[in-house]
């Protein structure tokens, strides 16, 4: 039965919100060409997953999911740090952070 309850907010609503945000992040990675904006898309995807974790943990009354969110946030911060460092080193080499120039990325 394909009926959606629009008044009483439940787990499903959070999951759908998370799916939409995830897909927007995915499209950002796929469609944009600036390396930094692509990293922002990855952050959006990680946030969508975090919404899912917190929603499940809230509706199942378990806090373990929130521990995972804590870890995901740390990993995301680490990933942003390394990714931006790579961006800086790429920018020094090509004077540009547009991925269309990176056909010969070596050394």
């Amino acid at each position: 039965m394909l009926t959606v309850d629009f008044v009483n907010i439940g787990l499903n609503h959070y999951l759908i919100l998370s799916a939409i945000v995830f897909v927007i992040g995915m499209l950002t990675v796929l469609l944009r060409r600036n390396l930094i904006v692509m990293l922002m898309g990855i952050e959006l995807m990680l946030n969508a997953v975090n919404i899912t974790f917190v929603a499940f943990s809230h509706y199942n009354q378990l806090v373990n999911g929130q521990v995972m969110v804590f870890f995901v946030m740390t990993i995301a911060a680490a990933e942003a740090g390394v990714g931006l460092a790579i961006c800086v080193s790429i920018f020094k080499r090509f004077k540009e952070v547009n991925i269309s120039l990176f056909e010969n990325l070596r050394g």
Partner: peptide
């Protein structure tokens, strides 16, 4: 901060 270092104004081709 990284964006400010790069000093990108407007991109030539932002989308693929």
């Amino acid at each position: 901060m990284v964006l400010m270092i790069f000093d990108l104004k407007k991109e030539r081709d932002a989308f693929s």
